[in-house]
Design a protein around this nucleic acid. Structure first.
Lengths: 153, 153
DNA sequence: ATACCTGCAAATGCTTTGCGGATGG
DNA sequence: CCATCCGCAAAGCATTTGCAGGTAT
C-alpha cells in the first residue's frame, strides 16, 4: 500500500512538474484504500479528519484536479451533485456504470458494448470515446417497485 | 405548432391535476420550437425575454420539474453545469448521446445498443434502464487534434 | 372557494478563487 | 531561491425555497 503510493508519486514526479506534499500523499492513500468505490471530496475530507490531520476542502479539490489531469484518478459526475472519483487501475477490465436515479447506487458492468463499437464511432462519427465513460441511467432492483409513472403521451 | 401545444396541454390537464398558465404555455412553445436541440433554463429565459413577457428563472425551474415528471420533456445533465432539456417525441427513434469533453458538443446516435441489452440487464442485474439515458464521453472530430495526454502509468 | 401557481428576494450547497504565508526541489 | 502549494475566508454560480399575493378550475 505504502509502496504503491510511493510508486505513483515517483512516477508523477518523473513525468510532471508537480510537487509531492504530505496532503497529496494522504489523499492518494485514501484513494487507494477506497479503490473499489466512488468517493467524493466530502468523504475524502472526513477520512482525512479520522486520520491524523485534516485536509481542507479546497486543498482536496485542487489535488483532485491535478490527479485527474495526470490520469491517476477518474472523475465521475453521476448527477447527484457530488463529483465522484475512482482510482484508475490499468489492470482492471474496462467497466461502465449503471446509475439508479432513485437511490444513486452505482453498478459496474463489463462486456456491455459490442467489440467494434470504438472503431465504428470513430469512423462513422469521428468520435473517440473514453474507456469507462459510458453511463446508463435507470432504476435498480430495490427501487423498481417504489416508483410511480404519472403521465405519458 | 399552436395546435401541438394545445394538444399537450389538454392531455396534461386530463391526466394530471396541474394547471395551465400563460407561463407554462410559453415554455412549452419554446421547447417545441427547439425540439431538436438540448436547451437550458438560461436559454429558455432569454427566449422568453425576446418574446413578449419574461418568465423568471425560478418559474422556469418549477415548470421544468413538472414537465419532466409528467414525461413531456427529458432532463439531461451533460456535465457542463447546466441542466439541458429536450422535448420528448414518442415518434422519434430512441437515441443516445455522445458528449465532447472539450467543446461540449452533443452528438445523437441511434442503434448503438444490442437489441437484447434491456432484458439482459434486467435479468442479470435487476436493472431497468431508461430509454435515451445512455451517455458516452469523449472527444469529437474537431477537438481530437487539440489534445494533450500528459501522464499515464 | 381553494388548491395551485407566480415572482421576488434570499438561501443552498458544491466548487472555485484570491491572497499571504509556507515549503518542496 | 523561487515556483509551487497550502489554508483560510470569501466569492461564484446553478438551482431551490419561503412567502405573500395572484389565478385557474
Amino acid at each position: 500500500m505504502k509502496l504503491e503510493v510511493n510508486d505513483i508519486i515517483n512516477s508523477l514526479v518523473e513525468h510532471n512538474e508537480l510537487r509531492i506534499t504530505d496532503q497529496r500523499k494522504k489523499i492518494l492513500e485514501i484513494l487507494i484504500e477506497n479503490k473499489d468505490k466512488h468517493i467524493s471530496v466530502e468523504e475524502i475530507y472526513s477520512l482525512s479528519k479520522q486520520k491524523d490531520n485534516t485536509i481542507p476542502i479546497p486543498t482536496i479539490y485542487r489535488a483532485m484536479d491535478i490527479l485527474e489531469k495526470t490520469g491517476v484518478i477518474i472523475k465521475n459526475d453521476f448527477g447527484d451533485g457530488f463529483a465522484k472519483y475512482e482510482f484508475f487501475m490499468k489492470e482492471k477490465e474496462t467497466h461502465h456504470h449503471l446509475i439508479c436515479r432513485k437511490c444513486g447506487k452505482i453498478i459496474e458492468i463489463t462486456g456491455l458494448l459490442p467489440e467494434d463499437l470504438y472503431n465504428r464511432l470513430l469512423q462513422e462519427k469521428g468520435f473517440q470515446y473514453e474507456a469507462q465513460s459510458l453511463k446508463i441511467y435507470g432504476y435498480c432492483k430495490e427501487c423498481i417497485n417504489k416508483l410511480r409513472k404519472p403521465y405519458s403521451r
